[in-house]
């Protein structure tokens, strides 16, 4: 066997060994009892403490909102990394568009498509969804404009500077909302304890800062993803 074949064989054997270890590990995976106690508390008292019907949003944005701040930071880091990596070339401003049929078909239904992320973001605390889902959909809709009509059309209208400013100000707004709790005296990113309006479960305006954080996260994620798309398209000369 050639040297390359022998090296490949060694990698395959190593992979097989890791696979066996992982299969054995999950077959005897123990379930921790203390974690179930935490989840029982969130399920039983989640609605009465946060006034949010969607328990996953309550966990993500109220009980564990610091982890969501970390996730927003990771998105920011990914956008920065791609911007630095692809900074060597010029932004592509080509006129390559899709066919006439595609453009006419989408242009007629495009405004209606924006209703979905709007609904999902604003009702994030009442039904499945939230800031991330709506933000990614908004980003995909903006990328669709760039794909349909060409970057020569979409870049002057939605420049990279505007996207960066949206992302920075969303990150700052997240932190300012958290600092409101510190100013009040109850803790960073505390929701009802910091005086945000609680309301009754099921209303659109309820659950403290959950709708506000959903909107902030939606804008941040959308701006970040469109920035990544523009950076990946750089021409590289």
């Amino acid at each position: 066997m050639s040297r390359k074949g022998k090296r490949r064989q060694r990698w395959i054997v190593l992979g097989v060994l890791i696979c066996c270890a992982l299969v054995l590990g999950t077959a005897i995976l123990p379930m921790s009892v203390s974690a179930e106690r935490v989840s029982d508390h969130y399920i039983r008292y989640g609605v009465s403490e946060t006034a949010a019907l969607n328990l996953v949003s309550a966990v993500l944005l109220d009980y564990r909102s610091f982890d969501t701040l970390g996730e927003a930071t990771v998105i920011f880091a990914a956008v920065s990394a791609v911007s630095v990596l692809m900074s060597g070339g010029g932004l592509s401003r080509n006129r390559r568009t899709l066919s006439n049929l595609a453009r006419c078909a989408v242009a007629n239904i495009y405004p209606v498509l924006w209703l979905f992320p709007l609904y999902v973001i604003l009702h994030g605390h009442l039904s499945p969804g939230g800031g991330f889902h709506g933000g990614v959909t908004m980003g995909v809709l903006l990328i669709m404009i760039s794909v349909l009509y060409g970057t020569a059309f979409s870049l002057p209208k939605l420049s990279l500077t505007a996207l960066s400013y949206t992302e920075y100000s969303s990150a700052l707004a997240f932190i300012l909302v958290g600092l409101a709790g510190v100013v009040h005296g109850s803790g960073f990113l505390s929701n009802i304890g910091a005086g945000f309006f609680k309301g009754s479960p099921g209303d659109l305006v309820s659950a403290g800062f959950l709708p506000l954080l959903n909107v902030i996260i939606g804008f941040k994620v959308a701006a970040g993803l469109v920035s990544i798309y523009y950076q990946l398209l750089r021409s590289g000369d």
């Binding site: 969804g129 889902h133 959909t137 980003g139 993803l225």
Partner: peptide, 14 residues
Amino acid sequence: VDVAMAEAVIGAGL
């Protein structure tokens, strides 16, 4: 359901 929606928009779309 939340994770399914996220996987649909991110995995299959983005």
